[in-house]
Design a protein around this nucleic acid. Structure first.
Lengths: 340, 340
DNA sequence: CTATTTTGCGAAAACGTTTGAGTGTTGAAA
DNA sequence: TTTCAACACTCAAACGTTTTCGCAAAATAG
């Protein structure tokens, strides 16, 4: 076992000072060619690599991005991480991932931990509990300390920072318009409760586009799932009670539960009922019938978020502060759960 | 914007020395009660938190675990991360995630980067390219430097370190035995090429259990997918050519492609053909028919890996070095793709 | 041959902590 | 009164870097 080589050891070995070694390796003109050559050769031979921690302390930056998400076993979030990772790596940053498990306390804990020097900035999607509590002190705390923060997906207006979102309203409108264009009259909505902002926005899109098409809005055709654990039963009930010819679900899970329910009712998808989902995950692609869906392009969102954050991190201090909100366009992916 | 508070600032503010502040906050008996109270009150008021980087440098440990995986947009790996994260958090460790994208070069790069002080140890699953190349110098490099390494899922004997694997062979045997018990005679295998160790082992399980049951082995009933991108077509071909009454696939994707192919052939799953997969992902649960599958318990694997690593990290130096291999049991989850 | 510049290198501070050793004051025992 | 211990605190080194400054010797100019 050979412990890591340091400048000090090289210096001792070659009988020069630490600063000489440092300068030689950074190719400073202060050091003579001979000495430089000797030191570089030695460093190369023994595979010297500067210690990141020491560099971080010295430079007061870690070249590390913290990303805090509610859960990782979730296709959308993994695509976002993937996007962040790509851009971060390109620009020489590492990514440290923390999970809040949708718990407010764990979110706060994680942020405090990472904020004490471990990362230069944050990319995060807020925990459901945080959105309910409407307590954002941990976010303002870190921004006050001068750490950049980029919020994505689940964002809130109260926090001033860069944001990356999708056009939930427009995405929903696209989906519902598509259904209308295909001749659907009674379009059901399976959404979440309103404090989950995506649920609220997609519901808004649904309502708006119906109005724009002069379709009367029937509250009975709208289902808001409170408890994810019982979503299956609730959706089944909803499908059975109503005589729909199309369903717009705000996520994959709801969509496939809807399809199951339709099938169990003895009807066919897409012949009798069309179903559109939101979020283009594994499930949508491989389900039979595969799902027509509104794609969120998580990877692109992650990449955008990383770019925004790194821009802030590498901004000259004299440049003026300003917060951007990037909207990543959604696109409708046609598959087999809707009529042609 | 208020930059982070340091010991030095507290010291200056309260007109004591830095060491006094440090000791007071750590409740040292060297410091008078009065002074302690004063300092603690001040620190609390201004929310002092020690700088992690400085601590890391001082203690020569970062309390961070690096995890390197081939890809993150993959259900199994996310469950593993989730397991690692839970245990790590419990024990006060952070998790830094790097993706190799199955590329050897990126794997090496990532390791070198993290090995320079950023993490105390590694948990990793090797890139496909690395397995092909059989070049493990980056692994031996870090272990030589005294950094603990835990390999999971895709492991190799040549590297000496702790390992967490599943009983691939036994898992495969369980699955195939189950099919035999249900009366299947012609059981097809859809596997990967042999340098992917899981493919090799699961194939071995398949062969062994057939032998144990005195079923003749027919090489035509074994398909080894070389190129994931064309797996769908290859599987379709395979299903069409052979007259199977059951299929054992070494992963979810292959399994559902097999189901699709069977259905397109005009047969029914599970009535005409039973299908069993490996890896219990989102897809298996929600596909229709839902998949009977061998569950890998990724979360448990991650947790085990984290425990092994942290044990090594916190081991007293005098304790003797030894490498364990933990085998996480698989279990067969019965769903609707096999006959009752 | 002196005066000045250039060259090549080392000392030391800084980043934020922790900690063993050192120091001055006080009070009590000898 | 001397001695010593206890107390309450400060100094300084260390972790591994980078970088500013200073300084000697060598090279050049006058």
């Amino acid at each position: 076992m050979r412990p890591k080589l340091t400048l000090k050891q090289i210096a001792r070995e070659l009988d020069v000072s630490i600063s000489t070694v440092s300068k030689a390796l950074r190719d400073s003109s202060e050091i003579g060619e001979e000495t430089k050559k000797k030191i570089k050769a030695f460093a190369k031979l023994y595979n010297y690599r500067p210690n990141n921690i020491a560099l971080s302390l010295k430079n007061r930056k870690t070249k590390t991005i913290g990303i805090i998400i509610p859960e990782i076993v979730h296709y959308f979030f993994t695509t976002v991480i993937s996007g962040v990772e790509q851009v971060a790596n390109e620009k020489g940053y590492n990514v440290i991932v923390c999970l809040s498990n949708n718990s407010f306390d764990k979110e706060v804990l994680n942020m405090e931990l990472l904020a004490n020097g471990s990362t230069d900035g944050f990319i995060m999607s807020m925990a459901k509990e945080t959105l309910q509590k409407e307590d954002y002190h941990h976010l303002t705390e870190v921004t006050n300390q001068g750490m950049p923060l980029v919020l994505f997906d689940r964002v809130i207006d109260e926090v001033h920072c860069d944001k990356v979102i999708i056009d939930d309203v427009i995405g929903a409108k696209k989906a519902v318009q598509y259904l209308i264009d295909k001749g659907a009259k009674k379009i059901g909505l399976v959404s979440t409760v309103d404090y989950v902002s995506v649920g609220k926005l997609r519901t808004r899109g649904y309502l708006e586009i119906l109005r724009e098409n002069n379709v009367e809005i029937d509250e009975n055709l709208i289902l808001k799932i409170e408890d994810m654990d019982h979503s299956e039963a609730e959706i089944k009930d909803f499908i059975n009670k109503n005589d729909l010819d199309a369903v717009f679900a705000v996520n994959e899970h709801f969509a496939i539960h809807a399809i199951k329910a339709v099938q169990e009712k003895g009807l066919k998808v897409p012949d009798d009922v069309s179903v559109i989902g939101f979020t283009d995950g594994e499930l949508s692609k491989r389900f039979i019938p595969s799902l027509t869906t509104v794609s969120q392009h998580g990877e692109r969102m992650g990449a955008e978020a990383a770019r925004l954050l790194i821009d802030k991190l590498e901004r000259k201090p004299e440049e003026e502060e300003s917060y951007k909100t990037v909207i990543v366009e959604t696109s409708l992916i046609e598959r087999n759960s809707t009529k042609l």
